[in-house]
Every structure is written in C-alpha cells, then in structure tokens.
Design a protein around this nucleic acid. Structure first.
Length: 275
DNA sequence: GAAGACCTGCTA
DNA sequence: TAGCAGGTCTTC
C-alpha cells in the first residue's frame, strides 16, 4: 500500500509525535515473522534500553537509528501503519519513555522489521530515491534507454528508482500520456523528460497532501493520526476505471500490465508509432 | 516474463 | 464465494 509519499508522511508524523529521542522500554511482538533476522526474544532484547535517536526514510524503507549503532529497517509492504493508540492488528508494540506507546499495525502481515548493523546492506540494492537530487534526468534516461522493457514494470523496480508503487506510476504515466507497455528504449528524449518531471511532480503533490488512500476500510492507508491521505481527490487514473478521463473525457480503462492492475486513458495513452 | 508465495478483509 | 488489493521475493 504505502509508496514514497505515504511513507514520508508517516516519518514526519513519527517525528512530530516525539518518537525521536525516546528510549525503548519494552517490546512486544505479536506476529513472530514480522521481525528478522532474529527470534522475537533476541530482537526484543537488542532493542530494549536503546534510544531511537533519529528516524529517516529511503524509498519505501523507514529507518530507526538506534543509540546502539544498530538500525531498525521497517518496510510497510501492503498494509503496515503506525499509531499511538491500540488497534486490532498490532503486530509490534514499543513502550517508549515518558509514557508513549507506538503500535505497528499490519493487517496482512507482509511488513517486515529488520535489525541491521549496516543499512547499506539493503539500501545499496536500491536505485536513487525518487525525490532526491541523486535521481536526475540523465540517470533516468540512461537507465530507461539501456533496457528493453515495458516502462511500467521498470518504474516499479526499486533497483532502478526507489519509492514508486502502483498508484504513483499510473498517475505519472497518465500525466505523461504514455502507454505503460511502451518499451523503455523507445522513448524519445522529450518523452523521457516529460515522464521524469511527472514522476517528481506526482510524488511531491502526494507528499504535500499526506499521501493517498482509497476507500474507507481498515485495510487502507492511514497515517499516524489515523487519517486517510488527501491525495485521493487528486488521483487522475488509479482506481478510476470507467470514469471519464479528466483531460479528454473518454472512459478510463483497467488493464493488466506485468501482473499489476493498471488504469489508463485508452485515448491519451496510446502506443506511439514506435515500439 | 510469468506464476506462486506471503496474508487478511472488502466488494461484487 | 471468487476475485481483488497500494509490495516484494522466490522459482520457474
């Protein structure tokens, strides 16, 4: 579920809640497989009495930098979220100093907490984070042109660029008027520039609006305050199949690309003469 | 590339 | 009840 803007929103709110600087007093692990690579007991032992000095984000990873020198790396996958109030699918509960309790909630249990000595072990396999200066048009163009793959799965590939998921990829492609099945090496210089700009744009707007949430059920994205994201009203493509394209008014269509549900405007996002 | 695995809950 | 979901990993 959460992509870069949702993860960024959560990190900001954890900081605002004053999680940084607090000591972990006790750890409760309700779903053993959430934590890696240690057993729940060993994992808890290593956390106890350490201070969460700093919280950061790279791509879709949340990092808790601990006073012990170790780092907790958290990936929310499809349904992970945080709250300071008890809920119904709390998989990890941290009692922090000064009476704050942090609940990690994850209905589908796909999320993971990894305790690592060196985050680079994992982050080193990722491409640049999509909202950093390291993600440049030159880098992006080169990465796309030297492969012969459909653009959508390439954009979802975290080793190329980190942070995009199904929603923001569909939004960026809609905004760029590009068909998700176009081959990456068929894109012109102009198309690459437009797509690059659209990626940065949809992510920035997403962050500004505190992420996206669809529907109202409890499996959907919630920020730390329990709110759904504000980007929902801004979504142009994702989840809008059957509704009119806000550019040309033709009905948006749902297709499957690389096994992922994909919404496109069949008129605006036609395959070009190439490919 | 594709399909299955990991999971639960919502919707049609 | 089947099918689907914002992610990623493993195994064809």
């Amino acid at each position: 579920m959460p992509e870069l803007p949702e993860v960024e929103t959560i990190v900001r709110q954890l900081r605002a809640r004053g999680v940084e600087g607090r000591e972990i007093r006790s750890v409760q692990i309700n779903w053993l497989r959430t934590v890696e690579p240690l057993s729940a007991a060993a994992f808890s032992r290593q956390l106890r009495e350490t201070v969460i000095e700093q919280i950061s984000r790279t791509g879709k990873w949340i990092l808790f930098h601990l006073s012990s020198g170790k780092t907790i790396m958290i990936h929310l996958r499809m349904s992970g979220s945080f709250s300071t109030e008890k809920g119904s699918h709390d998989r990890v509960v941290l009692q922090l100093s000064d009476g704050l309790t942090l609940y990690y909630r994850d209905t589908r249990k796909f999320g993971r907490w990894k305790l690592v000595d060196d985050p680079q072990q994992i982050l080193g396999k990722l491409g640049p984070d999509a909202l950093t200066r390291q993600f440049t048009l030159n880098y992006f163009s080169e990465a796309m042109l030297r492969r012969h793959r459909m653009i959508k799965p390439l954009l979802l590939d975290q080793s190329i660029v980190a942070g995009l998921g199904n929603i923001y990829v569909d939004e960026a492609l809609w905004e760029s008027k590009l068909n998700p099945e176009r081959r990456s090496d068929s894109l012109s210089k102009d198309e690459l520039a437009v797509l690059f700009k659209a990626i940065k744009h949809v992510l920035r707007i997403g962050v500004k609006n505190r992420g996206t949430s669809l529907g109202d059920g409890k499996t959907n994205y919630r920020d730390v305050e329990g709110e759904s994201g504000g980007y929902r009203v801004k979504v142009k493509a994702y989840g809008r199949a059957g509704q009119p394209c806000s550019r040309c008014k033709n009905a948006l269509e749902k297709i499957i690309v690389a096994q992922r549900g994909t919404t496109i405007c069949p008129v605006c996002q036609q395959h070009s003469s190439q490919d």
